[in-house]
């Protein structure tokens, strides 16, 4: 059986003014179903770019990105949007909750794209919020929550539509030690209990150690395993 995420010979260049910069260079990587992968590397090495391409919010310049049997490089914008809503759960460094919506409404947001009924949506939102331990904070607005709690709401939002893959870009980057531990424990649970595949970018070695596999990136390519 082939890997859930299979990337081969991926190159990504950005044009800035007249200059072309190559961010990812002929990169190949396989990530198996149920893996918990940490991506590490110096600033500017292309971690976020790789994660964005896996998540289908950025496009490869060259190479192929196969995810669960779909070559996402050839999808149209609309197809890709639909694909993301089914397969990808996003967890951002700065949570990116909508400030005028309550925790409940933020989690409900991705479900507005599904044909679920109102009561089914409610059940799903409540379930997601209880997984992250915030069932009692449903009616709170983001500004009434701590950073760690906001990130947990963001995770609940990612859980709500039940995707197979979670992408997390420095999910603990803006949190204190204790909150960071809580978030990592949550991600671990998602991986172990719910069998979700997780790709996480982090600068923090102790965070990376919670993952099963650590990949190091440097200057747009992976450093071969065992060499770091």
């Amino acid at each position: 059986m082939s890997a859930l995420i299979s990337i081969s010979h991926l190159t990504k260049t950005y044009k800035r003014e007249k200059q072309e910069i190559t961010v990812l260079k002929d990169l190949s990587i396989d990530i198996e179903q149920g893996d918990f992968v940490a991506l590490m590397g110096p600033s500017g090495s292309g971690k976020t770019t790789l994660l964005n391409i896996i998540a289908g919010i950025d496009r490869p310049t060259q190479g192929e990105v196969m995810i669960a049997g779909t070559n996402i490089g050839v999808l149209t914008e609309t197809e890709l949007a639909k694909w993301r809503s089914r397969h990808i759960g996003f967890i951002f460094q700065f949570y990116n909750l909508i400030p005028v919506l309550t925790a409940f409404e933020n989690v409900e947001l991705p479900l507005m794209l599904t044909p679920l009924s109102k009561s089914e949506r409610r059940r799903q939102v409540e379930l997601a919020l209880s997984v992250v331990g915030l069932a009692d904070r449903m009616d709170h607005y983001p500004r009434q929550l701590s950073g760690g709690q906001e990130q947990r709401v963001a995770i609940a939002r990612a859980i709500a539509s039940d995707p197979d893959i979670f992408v997390a870009d420095e999910p603990t980057g803006d949190l204190d030690r204790v909150s960071a531990e809580e978030i990592l424990t949550l991600l671990e649970r998602l991986n172990k209990e719910f069998g979700k595949t997780i790709v996480m970018v982090t600068h923090d070695p102790s965070a990376a150690n919670r993952a099963r596999i650590i990949h190091h990136l440097e200057k747009g390519d992976l450093i071969p395993q065992g060499q770091s």
């Binding site: 998540a55 919010i57 914008e77 609309t78 949007a81 639909k82 993301r84 809503s85 089914r86 990808i88 996003f90 951002f92 990116n96 909508i98 947001l109 991705p110 794209l113 939002r157």
Partner: peptide, 13 residues
């Protein structure tokens, strides 16, 4: 940034 988040969640034009 919010529009970007909405788009990443799958909201379309």
């Amino acid at each position: 940034r919010e529009y970007a988040v909405l788009k990443s969640l799958g909201f379309t034009g």
